[in-house]
Design a protein around this nucleic acid. Structure first.
Length: 226
DNA sequence: GCATTAACCACAG
DNA sequence: CTGTGGTTAATGC
């Protein structure tokens, strides 16, 4: 276990920024850092929850088995907590988390984490705020998923990945087309067709895994109107 | 009915 | 894993 590593951690969560030096030292004694390679499972749906997990860097997909196939609930870019709802809401992990890029995660003892919530209201507030933001985002995704057509969902997803994950109109998509289908609630064939259609219309360009958004305005329009 | 949409299947790079 | 074509079920004029 790495001693006191949290005190000087450069990717503290908002909640951890609030902790005192003493609390950070205690956190340091209560957590351990692990590296994950792309594709490795961080949380498996159905297993008992063990620790609070915080990804320091990398990119993770949160996914869950549906009646017919896998659904990716959302992509989580570090830094962020992982699995708080399962840890506090249930003994069993309600979804899986898998690294889609090489990632580093801290496993934090539940007892230590809970103690900070009991004793430090501002810390607790930040945790609640993060959970609320996630719920709001999930609700938005849920609305879009159910009311937009496939083209609209793809357009929206591409915009979102470009803005929120890579902050760049050109990015290397770390997902397969099949996973992109799981993310947009469609088949991998439709993903393939829509991507080539977008390319033909000059909205995006693809070179292998690299996607560039050329006409963001048009993409927004498709996202809105399908 | 006929057109459209999108999933499912199959097969080839 | 990706790209395509054919088929098919559901839905909307």
């Amino acid at each position: 276990m790495k001693k006191n590593s949290c005190k000087h951690c450069s990717v503290k969560s908002k909640a951890e920024e609030i902790l005192s030096i003493d609390e950070l030292e205690e956190l340091g004694r209560s957590c351990n850092e692990v590296d994950f390679k792309k594709g490795e499972s961080i949380i498996k749906e159905g297993t008992l929850t063990s620790n609070v997990i915080y990804i320091k860097n990398g990119l993770v997909k949160i996914h869950k088995k549906g009646p017919h196939k896998e659904l990716i609930l959302r992509l989580v870019k570090a830094p962020s907590y992982l699995g708080l709802p399962s840890v506090f809401g249930d003994k069993i992990n309600q979804y899986s988390a898998t690294a889609i890029e090489n990632s580093t995660a801290c496993y934090i003892s539940f007892n230590a984490f809970q103690k900070f919530i009991f004793t430090n209201g501002n810390f607790a507030l930040e945790i609640i705020a993060e959970l609320c933001r996630n719920e709001i985002n999930d609700n938005q995704r849920w609305v879009n998923q159910s009311q937009k057509n496939v083209n609209g969902r793809m357009a929206e997803t591409l915009c979102c990945i470009s803005h929120h994950i890579f902050q760049n109109e050109t990015f290397n998509l770390p997902l397969t087309q099949s996973e992109l289908g799981d993310l947009t609630g469609t088949s991998r064939e439709s993903v393939c067709r829509i991507l080539t259609e977008f390319s033909q219309d000059g909205i995006i360009s693809q070179a292998g895994k690299e996607i560039s958004i050329i006409n963001a305005e048009k993409l927004e329009k498709i996202s809105k109107n399908g």
